[in-house]
């Protein structure tokens, strides 16, 4: 009995997901080490600038996750593939988590640098907030709609229309800002190579983390769907 369960849960071939998880834990440590000890402190912002190594990768990984939601939604509407639906479902959760990290890290950075946690006239801030709200709604649809085909379809529609809306929000706010006093922006300067290396490692670590989280959540969803099938029988 126990053997069958172990057989389903942990396949006998090497578990790639577990290897990726362990490798990513190491990579995250390396990224943190690089950010603290290797990357130079910013001459103007000081230590606060190091938030950047988590904030930007989290934002990029969140967009990647929502792109998975978008593609999964299209595929599900096209052929009702349960795999696409499950992927979209778990990617939305991971994307929402990463967007939360992005928003919190951004606010923590903004407080000492801009003197306030939040500004309304920055298109990135507003569109990220709306992004968070849209995918929080997506997960609510998942919870409220009848599981199965209806939840899949409705969520796919929200995921697709929501994805279209986000750049429009970004555009609206930047248009709005052009007739508003401009926000001060730092002069672009050449970035030192140490900084770029640290950023690249952090980005890889966070992207891999997102993939690992999606992988584990996907497994849970497979088991949950299987359980539902047994219960429905």
């Amino acid at each position: 009995m126990a053997a069958t369960h172990a057989g389903t849960l942990a396949p006998s071939r090497p578990d790639l997901l577990r290897i990726a998880a362990v490798a990513d834990a190491a990579l995250l440590l390396v990224a943190a080490g690089l950010a603290v000890f290797y990357a130079p402190a910013d001459s103007v912002q000081g230590i606060v600038q190091k938030i950047f190594y988590l904030h930007v990768p989290a934002a990029i990984a969140a967009y990647a996750a929502f792109a998975v939601v978008l593609v999964g939604g299209f595929v599900f509407l096209w052929n009702e593939s349960p795999t696409a639906d499950r992927l979209a479902r778990v990617a939305a959760e991971v994307g929402l988590l990463l967007t939360t990290v992005t928003l919190v890290m951004g606010a923590l950075w903004a407080r000492p640098i801009w003197g306030t946690y939040w500004v309304w006239w920055d298109p990135r801030l507003v569109s990220t907030l709306v992004l968070w709200l849209i995918y929080a709604g997506y997960l609510l649809v998942r919870r409220i709609a009848t599981p199965g085909r209806q939840a899949g379809r409705f969520a796919a529609v929200v995921g697709i229309v929501g994805f279209i809306d986000v750049p429009i929000v970004h555009f609206s706010v930047s248009w709005w800002r052009t007739i508003h006093p401009p926000v001060e922006t730092a002069a672009p300067e050449a970035l030192p190579p140490e900084l770029l290396l640290t950023f690249a490692v952090s980005l890889d670590a966070v992207l891999l983390l997102a993939a690992v989280l999606v992988g584990y959540r996907y497994r849970v969803e497979v088991l949950r769907d299987r359980l539902q099938e047994v219960l429905d029988r």
Partner: peptide
């Protein structure tokens, strides 16, 4: 929850 965030461009 679904409509309000998507209406933001119209509100802006």
């Amino acid at each position: 929850v679904l409509a309000l965030p998507l209406w933001i461009p119209f509100v802006v």
